[in-house]
Amino acid sequence: MEAILFYLTALVAVVAAFFVTKCRNPVNSALCLVTNFICLAVFYVMLEAPFMAAIQIMVYAGAIMVLIVFVIMLLNLGTAVKSRYTHGLAAGGVLSVLMLLVATVFLGKGSATATGGEVTSELIQSYGHTELIGRAMFTDFLLPFEIASILLLVAIIGAVVLSKRKV
């Protein structure tokens, strides 16, 4: 049952990812990318990480992609691109074949898939995924968390400074 669901979602994800590059119209590309993000969220749910799934949809599909569509709208890029880019397609094809080779080599070695962490399904069932993430983030990984928050603060201030009108 879970395998069937996985393969169906994977099929949708791969087809959507293909059409992100294939579509001539940037709006349709953006829509396909959203589809891909939602498929990723479904994978997170299957991996018993519902918090990650919700954050994936909220941040990527709900915020970042909306901004991208907004930019498409403001720059009036909604018209279809007529010219073909064969060089880019060829380079992308070569790159993806290389990626596939690397992935199969690593999967064949078995070290990438068979490792288990401290967090097990039983732990998630008893505590809840959100609590586990919160605990890890605010005890073991407090310093990286604070560094990330300072980085975000710098980015926010930078955005304000760059877009501020001269008075």
């Binding site: 918090f51 909220m58 599909a61």
Partner: peptide, 15 residues
């Protein structure tokens, strides 16, 4: 388990 976050995510998709 993530009820409210689910609602917020769906509100984000409504845009």
């Amino acid at each position: 388990n993530i009820g409210i976050l689910f609602i917020l995510a769906m509100a984000g998709l409504g845009v």
